[in-house]
């Protein structure tokens, strides 16, 4: 998948009589291989945008096309299949399954999926890639925050997605660790050629991206080239 396009994207949350407009008229397109940072104050709709792009949620209005295909019109299982094929998610809270070891966590996306590679080998490979060869059998509770996030990244890339979506991946980490995670994402972007979309509060990190999108109150304030490109 080469290109994601958002047209007139609109997202509204309704509940208890009130309604919050999280995204308003977003028009963006993303190319595979881009390294995009999304910044903006809290509540500006970054996560919402990311979840729409990652097919975790559906827009209230507007269209999202993936190589011209409107995946969101399909059934839930089809969407899930699409997610499996194309998208890897990284969360601010890591969201590892507490009852599974690092290796098992990395394996979860491959569960009951047919893949052309050996699952265990692949999982070990990606864990090696994120530098965690010695922590395969550790439970998340036995890992530091940075290590947990690296497991989460391994999990996000184990199924070789074309896109990596990261919602404040460094938010819960100290600057130094955050930096390293950032480097890891950058490396993945360069080595695997997958498109990376990441939300961050850290202007220093954002500045390093090839494209920087600034949001506020559900609208895109600016969309400009970063330093690295």
């Amino acid at each position: 998948m080469e290109k994601i396009e958002c047209k007139n994207l609109h997202k509204e949350f309704k509940g208890d009589g009130t309604s919050t407009v999280a995204l308003n008229n977003i028009n963006l397109s993303f190319q595979k291989g881009e390294f995009t940072a999304i910044i903006g104050p809290s509540g500006s709709g970054k996560s919402t945008l990311l979840s729409l792009i990652g097919t975790l949620d559906k827009p209230s209005n507007g269209t999202l096309t993936y190589d011209r295909e409107e995946i969101l019109k399909k059934g839930k299982n089809k969407i899930a299949d699409f997610r499996f094929k194309e998208i890897g998610f990284i969360f601010q809270q890591f969201h590892l399954l507490p009852t599974l070891t690092a290796l098992e966590n990395v394996l979860t996306p491959l569960f009951a999926r047919k893949v052309p590679y050996t699952k265990i080998e692949r999982a070990k490979e990606v864990l090696k890639q994120v530098g965690l060869t010695d922590k395969l059998d550790s439970l998340p509770s036995q890992l530091s925050g940075g290590q947990q996030q690296r497991v989460a990244i391994a999990r996000a890339i184990v199924h070789k997605p074309s896109w990596l979506l990261a919602d404040e991946p460094t938010g819960n980490l100290d600057t130094e660790t955050g930096e390293r995670i950032y480097e890891l994402l950058k490396e993945l972007n360069e080595l695997e050629g997958c498109g990376v979309l990441f939300v961050t509060h850290d202007p220093v990190l954002a500045a390093k991206a090839s494209r920087i999108i600034t949001m506020k109150d559900g609208v895109v304030l600016s969309d400009k080239e970063g330093v690295s490109s």
Partner: peptide, 16 residues
Amino acid sequence: RKEFAVLLSIGWRPSR
């Protein structure tokens, strides 16, 4: 619930 949401977000089918 959250665990399940995560599983869905990483590509699990709801039927699974």
